[in-house]
Every structure is written in structure tokens, then in C-alpha cells.
Nucleic acid binder design. Sequence first.
DNA 1: GACGGCTAGTTGTCTAGACAACTGGGGAAC
DNA 2: GTTCCCCAGTTGTCTAGACAACTAGCCGTC
Lengths: 258, 258
Amino acid sequence: MDSLKLDRQSVVPLYFQIQQQLLQHIRLGRFKPGRPLPSEEVISRRLRVSRMTARQALKSLCSQGVAYSQRGKGTFVAETKLEKNFRQVLSFSEEMEARGTRPHSKVTSFEVVSAGGAAAETLRVSPGEKLIQLRRVRMADSLPMGVECTCLPLRLCPDLLQKFDPGTSLYRTLAEVYEIHIVQADEVVEAGLASSEEARLLRISKGSPVFQFTRTAYIESGQAVEYVKSTFRGDRYKIANRLRRQSNGNSSGGVQWT
Amino acid sequence: MDSLKLDRQSVVPLYFQIQQQLLQHIRLGRFKPGRPLPSEEVISRRLRVSRMTARQALKSLCSQGVAYSQRGKGTFVAETKLEKNFRQVLSFSEEMEARGTRPHSKVTSFEVVSAGGAAAETLRVSPGEKLIQLRRVRMADSLPMGVECTCLPLRLCPDLLQKFDPGTSLYRTLAEVYEIHIVQADEVVEAGLASSEEARLLRISKGSPVFQFTRTAYIESGQAVEYVKSTFRGDRYKIANRLRRQSNGNSSGGVQWT
DNA sequence: GACGGCTAGTTGTCTAGACAACTGGGGAAC
DNA sequence: GTTCCCCAGTTGTCTAGACAACTAGCCGTC
């Protein structure tokens, strides 16, 4: 007998509940890589939802790279474990937890500064407006992974210096204390060499290969709220991604949309 | 009066035709960044398709990072032009064309070798089986961008050495001559330093920062058909990506799927 | 044994609706 | 003038079905 558990009173959409439960089963190894997930029809019948809802749950697993579909055959658990999820915005803490390592940070400075340069421009604040600047060394299982410099407009979170415990997740604090929910980010990655300052903090030699990330995070309205520059060790950090190729069907149109 | 153009006889799905036409309008600047796209309802009425079909077209633009949706407001053209599309599998040629630069390659070797090491393992061929190995220097507007070493099992494309014109796109040749359609790829990016050999070919100094890509490409069945290792100049190459944050709704389940 | 057709199972596409949740603006009430 | 409510427009979620296209296995014919 199946112990179904969809909460139809919940505000959480059904497809999302289904997706989360499948994900949990995959994580626990109850669905193994390469093996099929329940078909749309089975989920639909078992959980008494329409096929489109079941389908939406499976599709969202596919778009996360966790599964893949084959017409006429089924939907299968994806093989590879990707080292860095390049699809979803994750804070460093969340990313390390997903990887199974214990995140930890050492704050090297946490202060209010005047906006200037790229940070001011990106965050759309007038030059001279106050920003909170947080510099941290990011560690995983006590090993230094990278250095990170985060800038936030002070007016959005005026008492962050008091409210934020640097041992916890910044994103979690922003959401819980200030109702600032980050939903999107643009990230640019460059390859570079460690400066002597970075080398010292990361315990590597100057000139070692590093990743340089520049991230801008946005809330739903499209307003940029966070500007981060970070440098991560090239020897301990990889980026992995699964790409799909767009099927090609050429059709040039003459529709008037206006 | 609107000149609608959906080909309902075509094998190309309606949602894809709509998506392509919207994309073309965006590329031509008829829908500007930050401005709204036609709403689901408008597309639905204008083109006489159901709202779900119109929605699927808009959603697929969103998943490509070309647009974004806001509940209650609409779907808008995304602002930023991303330097490297990290969502779609693109060959080097396609990527450079998308960027508006003229791609060009210099072949440094093109031969049959015996499989071994990571390439053999990834492509799932027995050690010693023959592989085609193609080494190229990749150029954009006559500037060297990176070096690339591509491996393919010989049995999949036995006369590639004759059939492939290195001036053209390898992916195009694979599709047209051998019916090998690449639909997915896994890519791992690392930060490294240029070796003296790479430095010479790329006209940079040894020890300069570079990106090291390792890509495995798959056909629909999941069979790996291409293994590529490449090194790109850190000073001329950036990776850009737009990430969405997964909305969080925790629900742990007890469904029996079997 | 080889081939072809049939069938059940699966995903892909599409329809025509429904209600919920949210946005933004206008207008009424205060 | 300010506040509140309502309404039209929009996206998010969901239903119940339909047919197409493809896969894989079974089975009978040749």
C-alpha cells in the first residue's frame, strides 16, 4: 500500500512537492543513476494529479540536470554528479552543503564604505552612498577555498552589522530579517593569477591559477542588491555544467506583435 | 492587419515556431531589453493557439536567459548580453558567430590514434581502439583564442579524415554526413596556467592564466561520441551565466513509487 | 533465423478551459 | 490629499482529455 503524501492545502505547488519528493528519493539512492523515474502516467495515477502536473515535476528535474527524458522510453536519473551547480543561484554555504562539505568563513573585514567604481554602477547607487562591505575567506572542511568581497547598499539593511552573524548564511539572514529574497544572479567567470594578498590568505603561492567570479544578485523586481567579487583556488575548485543543444527547426516569420 | 505565419502542417512544433519568431524580433531589436513581450493571452489570441502553447514558447525563452517573467506584470526581454552562453551546447564556430566574430581554425594535427586514458574511459571504448584526434588552434578575427584537442571513435565516422573540411564546423559535418546529432554535453572548467607549448601557439607568455575545458558530448541515446580538451586564453575569454534561485518550499515525503 | 506487423508503454505536443495570486491604476470614500 | 477598494491585465498552477511519434518486445509469417 502506498503512503501518498501530497498536501493539497499547502501553498506549495503540487508539481513542486512531487519534484522535491523525487529529488529526495534520488538523493537517498532509491532511484539510481541511469534507472528510470516513474513515468508521467504512473505519477499522475498514483498521486491523482493531471499528467501535465506530473510532467512539470519531471521537466523541472531535467532542467536542473538531475534527470533526462527520452521520447518513447522514459525519464531517467542523470549519471554524472556535477561539482558546481551552474543552473541555480546558491550561496557558498548552500553550495558546500550540497557538496557534502562543512562550510565555514573567516571574516577579514565587515564595515561601511562609500560606493565607487563598478560596485556603485552595478548596484545603481549614487557615488558616495554608503555600502556594507564584507570580506571573508571561505573555507570548506577547514581548508581555505577562496576570498570573497560582498557589497550591499546600506539602506536596504541598515543594521546588518548588528544583525548578521558571520557564522551563518548571508542569504538566509537577508531573507529572514529584511525580507530580501534573491531570485536571480548574473555571474562572470574569469581565469587569473593569485595576487600576493590572495595567495597569503589562501595559503598558495603567488601566481597560482585562480577563478575570479563577479556576481550581481537581484530581487524579483530586477533591482540589484548584491555585488560580489571573489577569487577561488584553481586547484580546489571546478565548474561543471550540463548543456543541451537546441533542436534546430528554421522558420522565419512575419508576425506583427504590436 | 497582422500577417500571421504559423505553419500548422510543419513538423516543427508550434511553440517552437513561436519561440523562434519572438527570438528573431528580439535580435532585430523590435523588442528591446527591459520591454515586455506579448503576453500569453495576446499570443494565444493572435496566433490562435492555446495559452499553454504560447506559455511554453515564452518559458523556453526564459530558460535560455533571453527573457524573464514577473507574476502579475508580464514577460520581459532580459537586459544583459551574456558573453558565453552556458546553457546551450554550441560549437566554437557557432559561439563565435553568435558573438559576431569570424571564427577560424588552424589544424595542427588530424590523425588516427589509439585510445587511452581519460578519453577511452569517457567514450567507453576498449583501450587500443582507434580514435580520430583533431588538434586545432581556434581563432576569432585572426586572433588566437585557444587550442583544442577533439577525440572521436573512428568507427562512428570512418572516413572523417577525407570528408571533413577543417575550415567548416565539425558538428555540422557530423550531422550532415554521419547523422550524428549531438544533443547534450557535460563540461568541466578549470583554471590553469599556459604550458610552454600552449603559450607558443596562443602567442602569450608561459604561465599566463587560462581556462581548461573538458567536454564530453552525447547523442540522444546517451552514448558519448566526442571528448574534447581545450585551453583558452584567460585574457580574451570570459564565461557568463544567468542563474535563477530555486524557490524554497520544504516538504519531505513518504511516497512509494515502486 | 529473418522480417514485418501489432501492441502496450512512454514522452511530445496541443487544446480549452478553470481558479489563484499578484500588479498597477482609477475612482470612491474619508 | 490620503487611503482603501475594485477591476482589468498578467503569470502561476491545475485539470481532463486528445492525438502523434517513438521504443521495445512479442508473435506469426516467410
